[in-house]
Design a binder for these strands. Structure first.
Length: 118
RNA sequence: CGAGUAUGCCAGAUGACCGCGGACACCAAAUGCCGAAAGGCGGUGUCUGAGGAAAGUCCGAGCUCCAUAGGGCAAGGUGCUGGGUAACACCCAGUGGGGGCGACCCCAAGGAAAGUGCCACAGAGAGAUACCGCCGAUGGCGGGCAACACCGCACAGGCAAGGGUGGAAAGGCGAGGUAAAAGCUCACCAGCAGUUAGGCGACUAACUGGCUCGGUAAACCCCACCUGGAGCAAGACCGAAUAGGGGAACAACAAAACGGCCCGUUUUAGUUCCCGGGUAAGGUCGCAUGAGGUGUCAGGCAACUGGCAUCCUAGAUAAAUGGUCAUCACUCCUUUAAGGAGGACAGAACUCGGCUUACAGGCAUACUCGCAAU
RNA sequence: GGUGCGGUGGCGAAGCGGUAACGCUGCGGACUGCAAAUCCGCCAUUCGUCGGUUCAAAUCCGACCCGCACCU
């Protein structure tokens, strides 16, 4: 699992992020985001409902989303809370499709920091 | 070779790189960050990390709190016998009944002559009867006769064989018997009671007897046995907040623990209303050495039990097993010696023993039936 | 994780051993010049699903499926 500082846990934080009403979607995922102030690390929540499948499938989807996020984590703008909501089709998707979907949403939401040229 | 039955087992394997939970060791520590506080936050190495059902939550226990879990009633559960077990509604071995050619499988399987209820519609009648019917020997009435005999009627009365109704109609079937009939009598079968023999027992076998008694207890009930209630979100500690502040009312023939009721036990707290004040899924433990696993020896038909040796095998808290690749094994497809596709049901949450339900396939052992060959 | 309750026409809801009330909606008809209102008629053969007990099951018993509520 993610380190505690990167996790979005509290019900209140989820509620506030949904209430911000800023979202993007593609067939596999929905991304909600909420800009905070004075925050030094992005916090990420993952929501997989019972509609997706049984406990094994839901667990697998969560793992794959986390794995896909892992490489982007240091590049994400620090002052945001993000929530990924799984959609029904994700149960049948491969890891590569999920990885593409995560990348697509992060770029479209402009969450990737501009890295200094190397 | 094919079809099947029973029991037990497996749930792809190995390696490389990146990533995650836990334990241990070492290193690093800023007087740093988060938080009201308690407390938490780093790196490296080694070891370790989901199931046969982890599931449904249907039973049984341990454990914790309520009193140490007490008595009676009520309520609920179990229900052929014997054994196993911590316990069970589970397992083993039997009995009885049912199914299969067979190996074998299935069964909530105590009591209806302790009592009560119900048995709709139909039907005369559903523990009680006579609608159609059969008879009318006997008695009666009428005829007939010297008197009987005899003939008729179907009034008294007898019968339950046949018809019809129904899921079910006073044991079944055959023979004798009779006015017509009927266990009225007899043979066989079913059932009941008794005796004897065998078995710890359920029960079985033989003999004798009188002659027969509806179904339903997953209806109430009776009998025997069992059950106190709640659940790890139990519960304990730490921290914050509340209370330990104020006012009024009730209350020892009282109130609370106490939960369906009563008794009993313990305590003297408490309950209601108003004013004032105020917060959140806080942290640590419980939490994994246990009715434990494996091997072996002994007892037992078996379930299982005992001795000895040996092993330690997940403990998270929104929740850890994933990603990429290679090789081998398996299944399928296309073609030919290579390529492609695929892998069921399903994710520990205090812990065990069972049951039930879901499930791609594979392995081992024993046995049954059929065909062929020797 | 644990505990409890429920599932009956399209919707709500009664019935808890004897063959499925009632209200709303819908459909058809009557009334009307046309409507509304009113009146009459129709709509359950799988009572969530599968078994069992019984002569007979929505009802009693067991297993399974789905939905809802409560406990920090």
């Amino acid at each position: 699992m993610l380190a505690r500082t990167y996790r979005l846990i509290k019900k209140e934080d989820f509620r506030k992020t949904y209430a911000n009403r800023k979202s993007l979607a593609n067939p596999l995922l929905v991304l909600y985001h909420f800009k905070k102030s004075n925050q030094y690390a992005p916090r990420i929540g993952i929501s997989v409902s019972k509609k997706i499948g049984n406990a094994v499938i839901r667990n697998k989807v969560k793992r794959r989303i986390r794995e896909a996020m892992r490489s982007y984590l240091p590049k994400i703008k620090t002052e945001y809370d993000l929530i990924f909501v799984a959609r029904i089709k994700i149960g049948k998707a491969s890891f590569k499709e999920i990885e593409k979907s995560v990348e697509d949403l992060l770029i479209r939401a402009k969450m990737i920091r501009k890295m200094s040229k190397t």
